[in-house]
Design a binder for these strands. Structure first.
Lengths: 202, 202
DNA sequence: CCGTTCGTTACAGTCACTGTAAATACTACT
DNA sequence: AGTAGTATTTACAGTGACTGTAACGAACGG
């Protein structure tokens, strides 16, 4: 009863995917600022306006993993301890990264990180996504604890937990030169250390 | 030996102040998006370009307290426990807010918060400032602990501590209807509860 | 009084993003 | 299959933040 995907919907989905993929590739090749939205549109055979019909901003064109993280963390928080939930999600992200590296090469993965870090607009977009993650965590934690999203304990817990994403990003950046496998191990160790500090208390 | 303020410097400082004050007032009156940078420039008798010579962005025109917070937190972290430092800074901010409310009225203070919350560009600017605060905390904590800013423990501590700013903002929003004095008391209580949760551990 | 330095101005331009209306492509119904 | 309705793309015309540059003028140091 919930399957009949109409042609219009498939086209829409495919175009969206094509736009995002094309844009991401172009951003990686030429840099975010050097690519105009009109360029992406032309490369996909549509007009600029169509791009903005599908994406709310130029930054949103970049294929990122935030939606996955939000969904995964919300799900895990429903039946795991907060810190465990976060470590599991970030562990999976690390696995995904290794898989990506196998397909596109570790250098490409690193270039993606450098692109984001080097582009103020993308950094800002990253921050917004992190806030979405925190809000999702607040929601999930409040539900689980039977309190409201206004509860200070819930909010500080969510902030601390999503702080692990900071640790993840920086740790990855720091250890990336050591290659995929070794970096992954070091990142896991850093995350475990940070989580333990939160668990024990400051 | 460090005082001779030249005329040029005074003019610069005064113009900067005038621009920021004028812009903030106009934003509060007409809304952020309804005020063009050229409007602010005209109101101050300068050109648009001059405004951008003084401020990096339209959002930066809004007079906010972040620089004060960054400075204060950095200073306190040098010789207090992290959580105490944060609570002290936020306590002072609350005092400042009460003083502001006495001068401009509590309603004005609330409208300021609503302006920021209702304006996506200002929310983004707020996020960036929070990150600056976190980075400053990392720096200070690393110095104090004798480690590097890469240390996962330092980073998660900084993230958790600046998470208190989240609690502060939301708590203030939640209790603002009760009036300045009562709201301040409630906010302090919420902050104390959140800090205690971090101290005890998750 | 004079050369230098520094901020403002005028101007021209780029580009993300928006609104609107007409055209086109698909869907659903008979 | 035809057709009425709906979703999406297009063409077009804008808005406004932000940038670069060169000329100008005012304050600085001597």
């Amino acid at each position: 009863m919930l399957k009949p995907e109409t042609l219009r919907e498939r086209r829409k989905r495919e175009l969206r995917r094509q736009l995002s993929d094309t844009a991401t590739r172009m951003f990686l090749e030429r840099g975010f600022d050097a690519v105009r939205v009109a360029d992406v549109a032309r490369a996909c055979g549509v007009t600029e306006k169509t791009v903005f019909n599908h994406f709310g901003s130029k930054e949103a064109l970049l294929a990122d993993r935030w939606d996955t993280h939000v969904e995964a963390l919300s799900a895990r928080l429903a039946d795991s301890e907060p810190l465990d939930a976060a470590l599991e999600v970030l562990g999976e992200e690390l696995d995904f990264l290794i898989a990506s590296a196998r397909r596109h090469g570790w250098a490409e993965v690193r270039r993606f990180g450098e692109l984001v870090r080097a582009t103020p607009a993308l950094v800002a977009h990253h921050r917004e996504a992190r806030d979405r993650l925190t809000e999702a965590a607040v929601e999930a934690l409040a539900t689980r604890a039977g309190t409201t999203p206004d509860d200070p304990i819930v909010r500080i817990t969510a902030a601390a937990v999503t702080g692990l994403w900071n640790v993840y990003a920086l740790s990855l950046q720091r250890h990336q030169v050591k290659g995929a496998a070794r970096a992954a191990r070091e990142v896991r160790a850093d995350l475990a250390r940070a989580a333990e500090a939160l668990r024990r208390g400051l």
